[in-house]
């Protein structure tokens, strides 16, 4: 069995190509992206090539969860830059984007007219009802994990009403939620000191 080149032996170009290839192949088959990609990443970079350690992966997961945006892109940027600097981050991210981008262009190009047929309109009504159930279940799961006290519940209610009833600017609401979190935690810390 040919042994894999270790991270010092592999040229920058080679590392970038591998990053593109691995992220593209995982992105092409993974549904919903994000954390589902983790076991495959682990197999490729930790077990097979030994380019990363288990600790590297754990660090990546920890940091990833506090970064904004698409989880798969956060992962490709963090892992890519660890393996091959900024070029690696670019290669990995292009890998994540490429397969779904091409797939969707093909679907959109071929099927656009087909979507407005009466049969497809009914299919989509069914699909929306199904997705409605899927999102509700995942929101309940998320809620059980996150909404543990009156502060969290209040924030969730505000988030719900701000979109549904008031049409507030969502981006502004997210920023305010961040500030509210900071203030709340600071007040809690102060209270603890006073006690």
């Amino acid at each position: 069995m040919p042994s894999e080149e270790n991270i010092q032996q592999a040229s920058l170009l080679k590392r970038c190509l591998v990053l593109f290839e691995v992220f593209a192949s995982i992105s092409a088959v993974s549904l919903g992206g994000g954390l589902v990609m983790l076991p495959a990443m682990n197999r490729e970079f930790v077990e097979k090539r030994k380019w990363l350690t288990n600790d590297d992966m754990l660090d990546t997961v920890a940091i990833m969860q506090s970064l904004p945006g698409i989880i798969a892109v956060n992962m490709s940027s963090l892992i890519g830059s660890k393996i091959a600097g900024v070029p690696g981050a670019i290669a990995g991210t292009l890998g994540v984007i490429f397969p779904p981008f091409v797939t969707i262009l093909l679907i959109a190009y071929c099927l656009t007219n087909f979507f407005n047929t009466p049969a497809m309109i009914n299919v989509f009504k069914g699909v929306r009802a199904g997705v409605c159930a899927l999102i509700l279940l995942s929101a309940i799961q998320l809620g059980k994990k996150i909404l543990k006290g009156p502060f969290e519940i209040t924030m969730a209610v505000i988030g719900f009403l701000s979109i549904l009833v008031f049409n507030f600017n969502v981006i502004l609401m997210i920023i305010l939620a961040g500030i509210a979190g900071l203030v709340y935690k600071a007040l809690m810390a102060k209270k603890q000191i006073n006690n």
Partner: peptide, 10 residues
């Protein structure tokens, strides 16, 4: 901590 809670409602 604040953002995650609001996102559940969203």
């Amino acid at each position: 901590f604040g953002i995650r809670a609001m996102v559940v409602g969203m």
